[in-house]
Amino acid sequence: MPLVDDGSRDFWRGGADGRLLIRACAACHRLFHPPGPVCPHCYSRSVTSRAVSGRATVASYTVTHRGWVPGYEPPYVVARVVLAEQPDLHLLTNVVGCDPEAVHTGMEVEVIFEQRTDVFVPLFQPVA
């Protein structure tokens, strides 16, 4: 279960409204992740959250064949995806909704949310 705190609440709960909320700087308007209290680009402390399209590209991936985390039964795909809005904005996530062996670098994916009690975990699936 993700740890929800003041910084990460928007990321983990935005899915309740179907929105992927990413930290954004109010001064330079760039996105950054993980959420923090200071912009890593211009160091402004004025930070907010912004809904992004949820479109992304798989930058790298691995099919995990060993169970390390309870609730995750292998095989499953751990991936690094780059959000469409900003080329240096990447998330560690899972690609779901397809055969794990079908996932590949460059694959176009889109966000979906998986509700786990009161959080909505952003995951990605191939674009239909």
């Binding site: 691995t62 060993r66 390390w68 609730g71 751990v78 975990v121």
Partner: peptide
């Protein structure tokens, strides 16, 4: 949480 939420429990992954 940024790892374990996504089934990442080892640096191998």
């Amino acid at each position: 949480p940024w790892r374990t939420t996504y089934g990442v429990g080892s640096p191998a992954q």
